[in-house]
């Protein structure tokens, strides 16, 4: 049995529902679970607003030291840090599971995942690179940006329940317990940079470069899209799943807040894909879910008097730089 899951807090449930709907349309045989990094009982989401998908709340998967993780991480870090713990839960607790696929909530699956399931018969891991071909300009993001954040995008990873994958998940969980930070100078970028090690420490890792897999703002330079009768294609191949990272339906003119390479005017080929996504998010109550703040995350402390602080720090910083 193949299981697919996503991870989010209540504020991203419109995205998770959209992903779930797409899987139900294209891959009804795949069991889909939303891993919820939040508490429904505390948030008091009315029953009619709960997604019509299996929900598995973080506190129910048996992470020892969860409290410590929550104190240590912000919302992005926590949502990514728990990924291997969910993989471990599915491998250990759901006996029929043979494959587990993770999708970021802001993904839509457009086609049956037959090829992926075939690959998982032969491989223990399937990953997708951010870029399959070089990118020559130095706009954002460019090749340099993925060198300290990870060459594979962890919005998608598929694992076969095998000794190699189980060993990987165990290692990954250990790492992410306290090193799922964004700290580029020290080699850390959430769960993603660690996965650079996957093809090195383990064997049987497949890296899929099909342009229809995990197409997203970071690889638009090598992918040109078209739509015909509701079917989306990329470089004349079907779009398998598109990753709408950094897109906000409240700002429909922006492809992603994380990129400055393309606008919709330059890339009209993207309009159909994004119009569909926007309509799906609105239908799935995006504005409603966005109001919820995550139970696990305390608000970031606000430090006032920044200028005074900078002034006071200056002599010490100068001294430190001289050492």
């Amino acid at each position: 049995m193949t299981l697919a899951f996503t991870l989010c807090s209540i504020n991203y449930l419109a995205q998770a529902r959209t992903l779930g709907d797409s899987l139900r349309r294209t891959n009804p045989h795949i069991r889909f679970i939303i891993g919820l990094v939040d508490r429904l009982d505390v948030a008091q989401v009315p029953t009619d607003m709960l997604p019509d998908f299996e929900l598995l709340e973080l506190h129910n998967i048996g992470i020892s030291g969860l409290q410590e993780m929550c104190e240590h991480y912000n919302i992005t870090e926590l949502n990514t840090a728990v990924k291997p713990y969910f993989f471990r839960y599915f491998f250990e607790q759901i006996s029929q599971v043979s494959n587990v696929i993770y999708f970021d909530p802001d993904i839509i699956v457009y086609q049956p995942l037959t090829e992926l399931e075939n690959l998982l018969q032969k491989h223990d891991f399937v990953l997708t690179p951010h870029l399959a071909t070089p990118i020559d300009d130095q706009l954002t993001p460019n090749e340099l940006h993925h060198l300290n954040t990870g060459v594979y995008n962890l919005g998608f990873i598929a694992l076969r329940k095998s000794p190699e994958a189980i060993d990987f998940v165990k290692w990954w969980a250990e790492k992410l317990f306290n090193e799922c930070k964004i700290d580029l100078c020290n080699g850390l970028f959430v769960d993603q940079n660690w996965v650079n090690f996957a093809p090195i420490f383990w064997n049987n890792v497949h890296v899929e470069k099909h342009p229809g897999w995990n197409a997203a703002y970071w690889n638009l330079h090598e992918r040109s899209f078209s739509s015909k009768e509701g079917t989306h294609s990329v470089n004349n191949l079907p779009v398998m799943f598109f990753h709408y990272s950094g897109y906000d339906p409240a700002k429909p003119n922006i492809i992603s807040k994380y990129q400055n390479r393309f606008t919709f005017e330059q890339r009209p080929d993207l309009i159909a894909l994004f119009e569909f996504y926007r309509a799906e998010l609105l239908r799935n109550h995006n504005a409603y879910y966005r109001q919820f703040s995550c139970f696990y995350i305390k608000s970031e402390p606000v430090y006032k008097y920044q200028r005074v602080r900078e002034f006071l720090k200056k002599p010490f910083e100068k001294w430190l730089a001289k050492l």
């Binding site: 340099l144 300290n148 954040t149 580029l184």
Partner: peptide, 18 residues
């Protein structure tokens, strides 16, 4: 390293992909 540069070495991460 903060900018993703370690001389020529870090670029090699892309070689098996590209």
């Amino acid at each position: 390293l903060c900018e993703g540069m370690n001389h020529e070495q870090l670029w090699l991460n892309y070689v098996p992909i590209f």
